[in-house]
Design a protein around this nucleic acid. Structure first.
Lengths: 198, 198
DNA sequence: CTTATTATAATACGATTGTATTATTAAAAA
DNA sequence: TTTTTAATAATACAATCGTATTATAATAAG
C-alpha cells in the first residue's frame, strides 16, 4: 500500500511550489499561505504535511540540493581530471535557464542561512562537500604528476572553490549583463594555471 | 545655521542603527519600528526623516558603501601594482571584527537586491566599479610588462573579481571555521599566477 | 513677538504573518 | 462493516508589518 510514498510525493509537490515561488518573487514571499495557494492547497492541508514554515523551507532546500547532487552523480566522468572538474562546475553554474533558476533559488536560500539554523546547516554541509571534492580532485592531480609543481592542494581547493562560487554569484545576479559562455572560459583559464603546460 | 547638517547627521545616526540591527538580527528584522527603537526614536519621528522603508535601507547601504570607499580612497597606494591590489582587497575582506561586521551587513543587503530595485542598483554599481578597477589595474600591469605574457586583462579582471567576492562570501559566512589570514594567502597565490616569475 | 517651519509623538488602518483549533470528509485496518 | 487513521477545510488568534493621520512641542524666520 503506497501510503508513505504518496505522502512524500505530495511533500515534494509542495516543495516544488516553494521553489517556483522563491524564484518568481523572492524568498520573503514564500509564506505558508502563498505556498499553499501556489501548490493548490488549503492552509490546513499544507500544515498537515509541514508542521512549521522552517520545516517547509528546509525540505525545499534539500530537494534542490538533491537535484544538483543527482545530476553530478549521474555525470559520465572521464577520469581525465581536468575535464571532470569542468563537468562538475558546469552542473553548479547558471549556464542555461534551468540552472539559472536553480542558482537564483540557491542564493535566496543562502541568504536565509543567517537567521535559519536548519538552512545554515544545509548550506554549510554543501559548502564542505564541495570543498572536500575539489581538494580530493586536486590532490589526485598532484599524485598523478599532472599539476604544476609546488602547488598546495588545500590552498588551491579553497581558491577554486571561491572562484566557482564567486562566478555563480556574479553570473546569477547579473545574468542579464553577462554571457554564460564567459563563465566556463574563466574556469578553463583558471585550470590552465593548475595544470602543467604541455 | 546648521540645519541641513543636523538633518543629515540624524539620518546617519538612524542609518547606523539599521546597520547594527541588520548585523545583529538579519535584514528581515530591520523593520521601521525596530529601527526606530534601536535609534531611540518614535515611529513618527523616524518617518520624518525617511518617507518609506526602502529609502531607509538604501540610505543605510549607501552609508556602508561610502565607508568602504572612503577607506580605499585614503589608502597609501604604493604605485607597486601587486601591493596595491592586495591593499584594496584587504579593505573589502573580513580580516578583522570591524570588516567582518561590514561584510555580514553587505551580504545581507546583497540578498535584498533581488526584490528591492534601489538596492539592486547600488549593488550593481559597486559590482561594476570593482570590475572596472580590477580591469584597469591589470591593464596597467600588462602595459608595464609586469604581467605574465598572453593574459587577457578582461578575463583576468573577472576572474580576480569572482575570486575576491567568493572569498568574501566564504570567509564571512564561515568566519568561525576559517582563519582570516588564509584569505590573503589565497589572494597572494592568485596574484602569483598573474605576474611574471622573477 | 508673531508667524512659519521643523521635529516629535501618539494613535489608527488595513494587510499579512505563523501557528492553533475544530470540524468534516476520505480511506485504509480490524 | 465497523473503527481507526489520514487528509482536507474553515476559521480564529495574536503579533507584526508599512504607511497614514492628526496633534503637539520646539525652533527658526519674518
Amino acid at each position: 500500500m503506497p501510503k508513505i510514498v504518496d505522502h512524500e510525493k505530495r511533500k515534494q509537490h509542495i516543495a516544488e511550489a516553494v521553489l517556483r515561488l522563491v524564484r518568481r518573487e523572492g524568498i520573503e514571499s514564500a509564506s505558508v499561505r502563498r505556498v499553499a495557494e501556489e501548490a493548490g492547497l488549503t492552509l490546513g492541508a499544507l500544515r498537515h504535511y509541514f508542521d512549521a514554515q522552517h520545516d517547509l523551507l528546509a525540505y525545499a532546500m534539500r530537494l534542490l540540493i538533491g537535484r544538483v547532487r543527482a545530476r553530478i552523480d549521474a555525470l559520465p566522468l572521464t577520469g581525465h581530471a581536468r575535464t571532470d572538474i569542468e563537468l562538475i562546475i558546469a552542473q553548479l553554474a547558471p549556464l542555461d535557464e534551468e540552472r539559472l533558476a536553480e542558482s537564483e533559488v540557491w542564493l535566496a536560500f543562502a541568504g536565509k542561512a543567517v537567521s535559519d539554523p536548519a538552512i545554515r546547516a544545509l548550506s554549510h554541509e554543501v559548502h564542505e562537500a564541495l570543498y572536500e571534492g575539489f581538494k580530493r580532485m586536486i590532490a589526485d592531480l598532484c599524485e598523478q604528476g599532472l599539476a604544476r609543481p609546488g602547488i598546495d592542494p588545500e590552498l588551491e581547493a579553497r581558491r577554486l572553490h571561491a572562484l566557482a562560487d564567486g562566478l555563480v554569484v556574479h553570473y546569477t545576479t547579473y545574468a542579464e549583463h553577462l554571457e554564460p559562455a564567459g563563465l566556463m572560459r574563466i574556469v578553463s583559464a583558471h585550470l590552465d594555471g593548475l595544470f602543467k603546460a604541455e
